[in-house]
Nucleic acid binder design. Sequence first.
DNA 1: CTAGGGTTAG
Length: 480
Amino acid sequence: MPEARVVPNTITYNAAISACEKASQWQLALQLLSLMPEARVVPNEITYNAAISACKKGGQWQLALTLLGLMPETRVVPNAISYNAAISACKNEGRWQLALHLLSMMPEARVVPNAITYSAVISACSNGKQWQLALNLLSQMPEARAVADEITYNAAISACSNVGQWQLALNLLSLMPEARVVSDEITYNSAISACQWQLALTLLSLMPEAKVVPDEITYSASICACSTGGQWQLALALLSLMPEVKVVPNTITCNAAISACEKGGQWKPALNLLSMMPEARVVPDEITYNAAISACEKRVQWQLALSCLSLMPESRVGQSAMTYNAAISACEKGGQWQMALNLLSVMLEVRLVPGTITYNAAISACEKGGQWQLALNLLSRMPLARVVPNEISYNAAISACEKGAQWQAALNLLSVMPVVRLDPDQISYNAAISACEKGGQWQMALNLLSLMPEARVVPDEITYNAAISACERAASSSWY
DNA sequence: CTAGGGTTAG
């Protein structure tokens, strides 16, 4: 630009910073802002607003707030857009308290909050699962002379949806006409995601008379509602209906349908959908494969789960710890403890970090395979791997000891649980009592049973049966 | 010539 004898001015910088924002280059945006003083170009509110937006897009909420705070120092007065962008940055990181704080700071800064401000704060509350606050804010708008529009309502409906408050979500939807706000496809999509499958399908059927056209997100949300309700056939029916209404399924739609099959224990349609995705020009992603692998897990199709896992690299789909967790679980269900341990070591080779769920699945695989020593070994390796064991880890290990009739080891684990701040539950006690039974320790079995009330664990049928078996075994052996 | 808010899958 200097060669062209054109001197950049404020607008030039503003346009450049805005371009950085659109290209998701927050570092470059801030660099440009920092270069302005030496170029003797004075930033205005638009400059800062564009920079705040760039930080927001980059997930840099702290920097967005810093910039807002810096504006007065350079004698630039923040306006509603500055606050709105900063509030929106808090939303992205789930900082609903900060969003509310910014809103409360606006009057003393003499900036009047508008509908966009409220929508952004409501959205921040929605992400923070603060539905009561979201509804309060909506009700405060008239006295603040801010007029709620469809986006405000959509954010509030979404806040209700996120916490399963479908009645409140539907109530808001019904209030929109009298507030003279016209619902759009996002309104319906949000409401559908709040509802169980019956109501979700009702809402879907009501869309034409509301003159709202369903899109792929509408179908994805409806399929998801069917999936959660165990209605895998309906989920598949909705998917097959989409070409007729000229809505094109995307990756998320297919993922929701595969997930519906998974929940219904239907590995065949799940793998069928996976195989049909290329011809429908839908690109599978990690979630697609995770759902397909999990679908195989449900019906002991561990070989198929492993073949899905092996297909991922050639489809250029990245694998995560969750992918391996699903595959290890499939091996566990299929009684393949060697393969489960093998997958755990592969995870480490490909530098994926195993978590509590990974170890739990592997310990369970050892348990089912009768490998109590390996189960204990895995549990003992967790702290070294910086993975925190939970109740499930210990219960799986105690069960492994039970299957191997290792009553001392089982009791040891049970006694360690309170030390590591874990509360033994019914499963822990039942497994330990069974271990005593298998080890011929009827006194210890009864002792454990007597300890349960003070541990606030309620014995059930399994507990009593195990204790009774322990005593019967002792009685029958003493007859000879 | 430049700046702000809402929806779906594991």
